[in-house]
Structure formats: C-alpha cells, structure tokens
C-alpha cells in the first residue's frame, strides 16, 4: 500500500496559491510591518512577515517550500534593518520548515490550533533571533526580554488568526 493516497491528509489539505498572491501577500506584510510602527510605534512588536511565513508553510505543507519561503521573507526583512543579512533569514527558514512539518500532523483549519502554533512559533522565533545574535554575531548588547517576547507572541497570535482567515480566501487546491 502506498504511503500516501488521494485520501491522505496531505493530499486533502495541500493548497497552492496564485504566483501573484505568493509574491504580493508577503510583500504587503513586509511593507505594513515597515509602515505601521511609524504611525503607531507600539505595533513594532508585531511580526507580520512571521505570520506570513507560518501561513504559507502550513498551507503548502511542503518543508522545502516552507524553508525557501521563510528564507526569502527573512532576507527581505533583514534588508530593511541594519542587521547583517541572515539574522531573520535563518530564523524564518527554520520556522518555515517546522511549520510545514507541523502542518502534516495538526488540523490547521481549527482556529485554536492556528493560535497555539502561532504563539509557540513566535516564541521560538524570538529564541532563534537571540541565539543568532548572541552566538553567531557575538552581540553582547542583545538581551532577551521574556515578558516582551511573551507579549509579542500574544500580539502575533491575536493578529495572526484573522489574517489567516483572510489569506484562506486566496487558497487554491493543487
């Protein structure tokens, strides 16, 4: 018996996107991420590109696709900061890979599961950024602020769930 059949979860729930959506949705997230803190400084705590990474990785359920999407979004995000290229790139590549892996096992149509995964991946993303900054870049000024990172995870979850439902409209079944 084949490992995967047409009735398997992977085949049933694997989605694709129009190329324009694949490019524009992360780009809009990146631009909003750049613009919103100018008017509303407190929104700098959000990480919309992370939400886009998780969404596309989970929806496609392909680890390679998740890795590459996460890398592209992360490197683009690095280009807007004064960090060297790769800080967000590495972190989001790992998140994309793990999100695609989790997508096999968990029903991602359920809002509770979506919220939980966004919360946990947001925390993991913060931890990865901390490790990259402290170990790879040896930046002693970078400090992990647990409460701040928890708030970031909550904010990402709160924004992520409605955003996922919005992006669901652009899904096409492969």
């Amino acid at each position: 018996m084949a490992e995967l059949s047409y009735t398997s979860r992977r085949e049933m729930d694997q989605y694709g996107f129009h190329p324009s959506v694949t490019i524009l949705a992360p780009l809009v997230c990146l631009i909003l991420q750049s613009l919103l803190p100018k008017t509303f400084p407190r929104l700098g705590i959000l990480d919309l590109p992370l939400i886009a990474t998780i969404f596309f990785a989970v929806a496609r359920r392909s680890q390679i696709s998740g890795t590459l999407t996460g890398t592209a979004i992360g490197l683009f995000q690095d280009g807007l900061t004064n960090h060297p290229f790769g800080v967000f790139g590495i972190a989001k590549a790992i998140i994309g890979y793990l999100a695609a892996s989790v997508g096999f096992a968990v029903d991602m149509e359920n809002p509770v599961n979506r919220g939980l995964i966004t919360f946990l991946f947001s925390l993991l993303h913060s931890a990865l950024i901390f490790l990259i900054s402290r170990w790879l870049l040896a930046d002693p000024t970078f400090r992990l602020q647990p409460v701040h990172e928890l708030l970031r995870a909550v904010a990402n979850t709160a924004v992520g769930i409605p955003l996922y439902f919005l992006l669901d409209r652009f899904k096409t079944r492969d």
């Binding site: 990146l30 991420q33 750049s34 613009l35 803190p37 100018k38 700098g44 705590i45 590109p49 995000q77 807007l80 900061t81 004064n82 960090h83 967000f88 950024i129 970078f142």
Partner: peptide
C-alpha cells in the same frame, strides 16, 4: 518608513 523591527531602530 521604519525597519519594521523593534530590535533595529532605523527609519527611512
């Protein structure tokens, strides 16, 4: 615009 990250205090 801004860098979009609260770890990078940069404006455009």
């Amino acid at each position: 615009g801004t860098s979009g990250s609260d770890r990078s205090r940069l404006i455009l």
